[in-house]
Write a protein that binds this DNA or RNA. Structure first.
Length: 474
RNA sequence: GGCCCCAUCGUCUAACGGUUAGGACACCACUCUUUCAAGGUGGGAACAGGGGUUCGACUCCCCUUGGGGCUACCA
């Protein structure tokens, strides 16, 4: 058994979709697991919609996820001569024929069939054209496409995730393999490339199941052995429908911008439609490779659950040292227009990351501690203020007074805690009733590091200023 | 319409003929911490329906229902 060769073949007509990323990931995991070769092929034969920008973004997205390719990127557009040659070999062998029907004629027939609610199938009239008629049209320069002679036989394969899938050739069209301008149609190009690249396993989306019998027909006509096919399920939005813009972010770049870590994204995507069995959830790249197998792939389509992704990201955030978080956080702060003023942010990041789910969230919290103008009451904080009513104000006033009376030298975690405990005790309040208003006034949130530490992070003057400002605003 | 694929908690999933159908996210309680989060404990929550096969079906077969994909001189 020679080493497997797999490929990921996106078309650069859009950004790297999470579904595409997951397909790429499965191919990559399979290659790494089996010691195989991962080929990247850009299917840019749709000239109208393909752009270099999209290609760049797709490559960047893969790199971000840590998906490295061993060969390529190859560009399908560069191989049209071979695609055409393969199609013409089929013509010469009588496995394909020239079709002189125009697009307009075919569209009319299709519309007619539509009206009768019956299935449109090309009637294969050009297949029966006498040779001299063909010659005559050729001489007249009538444009033609090449169509495959669809054999009336079973076109089946043992899918690595679905088991046996079978189609009947008679249900399929003599589909076009070469356009009238000589350019190849998708299925022709794919098969030609997969043969030329000696691809052994085609791991791709479920939506290609219906292309597979057509491709098998081409393999047979070309006298080539088809690869192993593994059709992985689709990823849907929360409503069970195909993931689209209205479901929110669908491009991996958007998750990168959102502050999702590549390791978390990779882990999450791997578990969408695949399971190692058992209860494992947080898996390192190493474990993923070790455990991966096509048998573990689910047949059913999956719903993309952003909440769980963010939870998982939070798990990764916790284990990541502040040193590694610093650069992305600084970048985000810059985007937000917050100047760290040379402060070492790592201690702040360290306390804040345990309470965060995304890098964006970390940066937000750092910003709030650095810059009073970033303080905004969130929903829960707002509820708390309303719920406590006058008590909120009163508690804040007592605390502010006690804190202001503290000498600057006492502005450290221990003395601050002692002072606040004293305030609570003196007024018969629970410590939380004193702490929580301070937390809200300082950060706008009900969640933060312990308040005495928060006061130190924000600093004496700034803390007192925020407490005062909050009371005036309220 | 035709062809094909799919079906376990709201979501991701485990189970590969014998389990009180397990875990995770989310949600709700309680708990720990004289403050937050995290943590800990507990709770509600699923085998789409109907027929078979079998001593025994979530697991195998068939039908129904419900989702999805494809049906181009797009990829």
């Amino acid at each position: 058994m020679t080493a497997p060769r797999v490929r990921f073949a996106p078309s650069p007509t859009g950004y790297l979709h999470v579904g595409g990323a997951r397909t790429a990931l499965f191919n990559w995991l399979f290659a790494r697991k089996t010691g195989g070769v991962f080929v990247l092929r850009i299917e840019d034969t749709d000239r109208e919609r393909s752009t270099d920008e999209h290609t760049r973004v797709i490559l960047e997205g893969l790199a971000w996820l840590g998906i490295t390719w061993d060969e390529g990127p190859y560009f399908q557009g560069a191989a049209v001569d071979r695609h055409r040659a393969d199609a013409e070999r089929l013509l010469a062998a009588g496995k394909a024929y020239r079709c002189f029907c125009t697009k307009e004629e075919l569209d009319a027939q299709r519309a007619e069939a539509e009206r009768h609610k019956s299935a449109f199938r090309y009637d294969r009239r050009c297949r029966r054209l006498p040779p001299d008629e063909v010659r005559a049209r050729l001489e007249r320069g009538v444009p033609f496409t090449l169509r495959l002679v669809m054999p009336d036989e079973e076109l089946a394969w043992d899918d690595a995730v679905h088991g046996r899938i079978s189609f009947q050739g008679r249900d399929l069209d003599d589909f076009v393999i070469l356009r009238s301008d000589g350019s190849p149609i998708y299925n022709m190009a794919v098969v030609s490339d997969d043969i030329a690249m000696r691809i052994t396993h085609v791991i791709r989306g479920d939506d290609h199941i219906s292309n597979t019998p057509k491709q098998i027909a081409i393999y047979r006509a070309l006298g080539a052995e088809p690869p192993v096919f593994a059709h992985v399920p689709m990823i849907n939005g929360p409503d069970g429908k195909k993931l689209s813009k209205r479901h929110g972010a669908t491009a991996v770049g958007e998750y990168q911008d959102k502050g999702i870590l590549p390791a978390a994204m990779r882990n999450f995507l791997a578990l969408l439609g695949w399971s190692p069995g058992g209860d494992r959830e947080i898996l390192s790249e190493r474990e993923l490779i070790e455990l991966f197998s096509l048998e573990g792939i689910q047949k059913k389509s999956a719903v993309f659950d952003v909440t769980k992704l963010e939870w998982m990201n939070g798990e990764y955030l916790k284990t990541l040292p502040a040193d590694e978080l610093l650069p992305p956080v600084l970048r985000q702060l810059e985007r937000m227009g917050v100047d760290p003023r040379g402060r070492d942010l790592r201690p702040i990041i360290d306390t804040v990351k345990a309470r965060s789910r995304t890098i964006l969230h970390v940066a937000d919290q750092v910003a709030v501690r650095l810059d009073a103008s970033r303080v905004r009451l969130d929903e829960k904080a707002d509820q708390l203020v309303r719920k406590m009513g006058d008590g909120f104000e009163a508690s804040l006033a007592l605390a502010a007074e006690a804190l202001a009376a503290l000498p600057p030298s006492a502005w450290a975690p221990e003395p601050l805690l002692a002072a606040l405990q004293e305030v609570a005790a003196r007024h018969g309040k629970k410590l939380g009733d004193v702490m929580q208003p301070i937390r809200v006034a300082l950060t706008g949130s009900t969640v933060s590091e312990p308040v005495n530490e928060l006061l130190v992070v924000v600093g004496r003057d700034e803390s007192l200023a925020r407490l005062g400002a909050f009371r005036r605003a309220a």
